[in-house]
């Protein structure tokens, strides 16, 4: 199985540039005498301009792997490269100009928003810092970005604690996008928003993909994965048990685990 995945990655690597590659990555936690192999010797590629979906049951290691790709978690072994160069030097990752290139949306949106800063200010500051706009222009850009996700100018003035769950989640996506990254690693970016807001956000992702954004999308919402992903990796107990083109995974899953994952979508069409 592993060999097959590896062969496929090689094959796909031929005609596209791989913006991120992970080789033989493991993350092992030693937790109260229990050794947890959260990620277990996995290989992964993100071709430029594509969206890669990562799915799998709860606790299978998706978030841990996503954090490794974004440089926030150092792997116990193995390596990650960005445009062919290792992201890690010593205990640091994505140094200097690379810093802004890969941005992550966290599963818990509280984590990434400064509780003492109004949303618009936080986003505007990130825009100013990364895009070099002046104060006024970056504020306008921040309001525009938030509005394109369905956050009104009024709500944009609020502190994170005064927003609803879905508003906060979109604010954290906006924060990640404000750096104009070339790669977005999004861990459950749509879990807390309604269908209409979700459609709006996915539309925005679609536009950004057309402009060259590459995405790693972790989600339990297989509808979202199917809509956006070119290629899908299926994770179980820290390894990728199956990967393939999105339509292949959905129409013709090989592994029982994948079949089960897909078939238990509750009443996909409404009765």
């Amino acid at each position: 199985m592993k060999l097959l995945v590896y062969a496929m990655t090689k094959l796909r690597g031929k005609n596209t540039v791989n913006i991120i590659e992970a080789k033989n990555v493991s993350v092992i936690f030693d937790s109260y005498g229990d050794v947890i192999k959260a990620v277990d010797q996995v290989d992964f590629v993100l071709p430029k301009g594509q969206t890669i979906g990562v799915v799998g049951e709860s606790g299978s290691g998706k978030s841990t792997f996503a954090r490794v790709l974004s440089g926030l978690q150092l792997p116990t072994s193995g390596s990650v490269t960005f445009m062919g160069k290792p992201i890690q030097s010593g205990r640091n990752t994505y140094e200097g100009a690379l810093r802004k290139e890969v941005q992550m949306v966290f599963q818990d949106p509280y984590g990434s928003l400064n509780p003492r800063m109004r949303i618009v200010k936080a986003i505007a500051e990130a825009i100013r810092q990364h895009q070099g706009l002046d104060k006024k222009a970056s504020r306008v850009a921040a309001l525009d970005l938030l509005e394109s996700m369905g956050i009104s100018n009024l709500d944009a003035q609020k502190f994170p604690s005064k927003l609803s769950g879905g508003q906060r989640q979109r604010a954290s996506v906006a924060r990640a996008l404000s750096a104009q990254p070339s790669v977005l690693i999004a861990d459950e970016p749509t879990s807390a928003i309604d269908q209409s807001a979700q459609a709006q956000l996915l539309g925005l992702f679609n536009d950004l993909i057309k402009k060259g954004l590459s995405i790693v999308l972790v989600s339990h919402d297989l509808g979202v994965i199917r809509y956006l992903s070119d290629y899908v990796y299926v994770m179980k107990d820290g390894i990728f048990v199956e990967s393939g083109k999105s339509e292949e995974i959905f129409n013709n899953p090989k592994e029982d685990y994948t079949k089960k994952l897909i078939s238990s979508i509750p009443g996909r069409s409404i009765k």
Binding site: D194, Q195, S196, A197, Q198, A199, Q200, L202, G203, N206, G223, V224, R226, Y227, L228, S246, E247, R268, S269, I270
Partner: peptide, 17 residues
């Protein structure tokens, strides 16, 4: 609300809001 469901569209298709 019901008609903006994602399962009603093809991948990368036009979504309804």
């Amino acid at each position: 609300l019901y008609n903006s469901r994602i399962d009603l569209v093809v991948p990368k298709g036009q979504l309804k809001t």
